[in-house]
């Protein structure tokens, strides 16, 4: 019988569900687009996962992370619900034990995490500015008519350097058009864009931080060779891309669940793969009891309220 731990990372763009064994080895992983339906995407992911795992395995624990961690935590019966920063750092120090600096760029946000002796000592997170995230690249790839998968390889073929103003998406776009008219090739423009994104990222998130090697680059954007090259040029050091670069959040939360249960010896609160068939109904309502008019989120299972949050005063959270 194989014992496994599940990790679920629910972001606004994508959901990752993975299973690890008791040696923290990834047994299987599942990628689903969230499409604004975190519950459905996790349900589908769980079903797929079950099909792909040996029949005699047993789930010993489950952890959730990402912006939907609370909701999904309730649904699956998570043992550990953790923020993305801790989850990512946990996974990285597992795969690259001596890591000092983590660059993480996902579709909707980006982070930098500074590690000393396998401990987080500093971090920063960008959630407002799109110019430092994957969606910036997606958008520009579309404009240039280059599939995003080819983006990075193309950047590597550039012969000349071109500097594109990347302070903000809007500026980058108009500057890009101007540079195209100057006769720079697509490859050169793309390289310029990658460098703009990296400059932006370092300026925004790295400010006031000691950036020391070894550097690890992870998150969906790490697949992009152009960005990796731009990082290496900017900091003049090698940048490591870990094997599971795009599922680090899920991996970290699975490891955290495992460590948590090993430490306290409790059984898991996992609801089982049948959770995928349970009828969870999330809904929101506006509380009108004071002028804050909070948007309160409510999750029901069989007409019974199982979780609530989003209120500022705690009257709903506390009502369970």
């Amino acid at each position: 019988m194989q014992e496994i731990y599940l990790g679920i990372d629910v972001g606004s763009v994508s959901t990752n569900i993975i299973a690890i064994d008791d040696k923290n080895k990834v047994v299987h992983s599942q990628y689903i687009r969230t499409n604004g339906q975190p519950l459905d995407s996790v349900k589908n992911g769980l079903k797929e996962l079950k099909k792909n795992l040996p029949q005699d395995m047993k789930v010993r624990g489950v952890g959730t992370t990402g912006s939907g961690r609370q909701l999904i935590g309730v649904m699956v019966g998570a043992d550990v619900v953790k923020n993305e920063i801790t989850a990512h750092a946990t996974a990285t120090s597992q795969l690259v034990p001596n890591v000092k600096t983590i660059f993480e760029i996902g579709g909707q946000d980006s982070k930098i995490i500074i590690i000393e002796d396998q401990m987080v000592v500093d971090f920063a997170m960008n959630t407002v500015c799109a110019a430092g995230t994957g969606s910036f690249l997606d958008h520009q790839a579309e404009r240039l008519g280059v599939p995003i998968e080819k983006f990075g390889d193309l950047a590597l073929t550039a012969e000349r350097d071109v500097r594109i103003a990347g302070r903000c998406t809007v500026f980058a776009e108009s500057d890009m058009i101007a540079k195209q008219q100057f006769g720079f090739s697509k490859a050169e423009i793309i390289k310029g864009l990658c460098e703009a994104l990296v400059r932006n990222y370092i300026n925004n998130l790295g400010r006031g931080k000691k950036l020391e090697p070894p550097f690890v680059f992870q998150g969906g954007v790490a697949a992009n060779k152009g960005i990796k090259a731009a990082f290496e040029k900017e900091i003049n050091e090698e940048v490591i891309i870990p094997k599971h670069y795009n599922i680090m959040g899920a991996l970290g939360s699975a490891i955290l669940a495992k460590e948590h249960l090993e430490a306290n010896g409790n059984p898991t609160s996992f609801r089982g793969f049948e959770a995928a068939d349970l009828d969870f109904v999330p809904s929101t309502f506006e509380c009108g009891d004071c002028s804050n008019k909070c948007e309160v989120i409510k999750v029901e299972l069989n007409k019974e309220v199982v979780a609530m949050w989003g209120d500022r005063c705690g009257k709903w959270v506390g009502s369970l």
Binding site: S67, K82, N83, E84, I85, T86, M119, V120, V121, D122, F123, M125
Partner: peptide, 9 residues
């Protein structure tokens, strides 16, 4: 998220 991560730190 930041506050939780800070307390973890």
């Amino acid at each position: 998220t930041r506050i939780e991560a800070f307390l973890d730190l």
